[in-house]
Simulated scan of single mutants.
Amino acid sequence: MANVYKLVFAGPVGAGKTTAIQSLSDIEVVRTEANATDEVRLLKQTTTVAMDYGRMNLPNGDQVRLFGTPGQKRFDFMWDILTENALGLVLMLNAASPDPVDDLRSYVNAFRSFIDSTALVVGLTHVENGSWDTRQRLARELDQMGLSASVMDTDARSRAHMSALVKALIYGIDPFTGVES
């Protein structure tokens, strides 16, 4: 019988969560997009309001179910629902945002109990438009928060980049406890 795994993608609006899931999914992605009606409309026309769902089919028959959370805090009630029974968190951050370190702090604090019992990897998008030292500043902040997690520059449109990010997350999980080593 095939194993089924679950990963959650979280992060601010515009960080690339939906695009990442689309890049990885072997099925048509289920999206719950709605027209942005608040300040988000200045960033993009639509935004996720409940979740995104995709699925990766592994060569051995196993499946990885991919769930994307809404980026807006007003939909944070979905975060706890989506993280239930997941193996880990892929935190997507936009390097070109006004303060990626603050974004990191905010999302790590919101997901902290989940992260502490699973694993975390950080995917940094839009690096060409961000500061040259964003990845290093994020790594330092994670260290100060007592977390050991990979921070990787990534292109959410690239299946290869996103696969590397997912592999980094999975390789960080202790196979005996299911918790990040």
Rank of each mutant, 00 (worst) to 15 (best):
109 N>Q: 12
98 P>E: 07
79 W>H: 05
100 P>N: 00
34 A>I: 14
81 I>E: 01
81 I>A: 01
85 N>C: 08
62 D>H: 14
9 F>E: 03
47 T>Y: 11
36 A>K: 09
114 F>P: 07
117 S>Y: 08
58 L>S: 11
104 L>Y: 03
114 F>Q: 06
10 A>W: 03
144 Q>G: 07
126 H>F: 09
82 L>P: 00
111 F>G: 01
84 E>A: 12
100 P>Y: 04
126 H>N: 06
47 T>A: 15
75 F>P: 04
137 R>C: 10
41 R>A: 15
28 E>A: 11
100 P>F: 02
25 S>L: 08
76 D>C: 04
24 L>S: 10
139 A>M: 08
134 T>A: 03
26 D>Y: 08
10 A>Q: 06
117 S>W: 07
29 V>R: 02
133 D>S: 07
51 M>V: 12
72 Q>R: 05
100 P>Q: 02
10 A>H: 06
55 R>V: 15
96 A>R: 02
14 G>E: 06
28 E>I: 11
24 L>Q: 10
8 V>H: 05
122 V>Q: 04
81 I>Q: 07
144 Q>T: 08
108 V>E: 03
93 L>V: 08
29 V>D: 00
135 R>N: 09
72 Q>T: 03
143 D>S: 11
71 G>D: 00
21 I>T: 03
132 W>N: 14
73 K>Q: 07
66 L>E: 00
11 G>S: 05
47 T>Q: 15
51 M>A: 14
35 N>Y: 13
142 L>E: 00
116 D>N: 12
70 P>H: 00
19 T>W: 01
8 V>M: 05
116 D>Q: 12
138 L>V: 03
79 W>N: 02
49 V>F: 13
133 D>A: 06
49 V>W: 13
22 Q>W: 06
18 T>R: 08
140 R>C: 09
71 G>P: 01
23 S>D: 04
140 R>D: 11
133 D>K: 04
55 R>P: 13
99 D>V: 02
63 Q>M: 14
39 E>Q: 14
138 L>Q: 01
7 L>F: 07
59 P>N: 15
41 R>I: 13
57 N>V: 15
69 T>D: 04
127 V>L: 07
38 D>P: 07
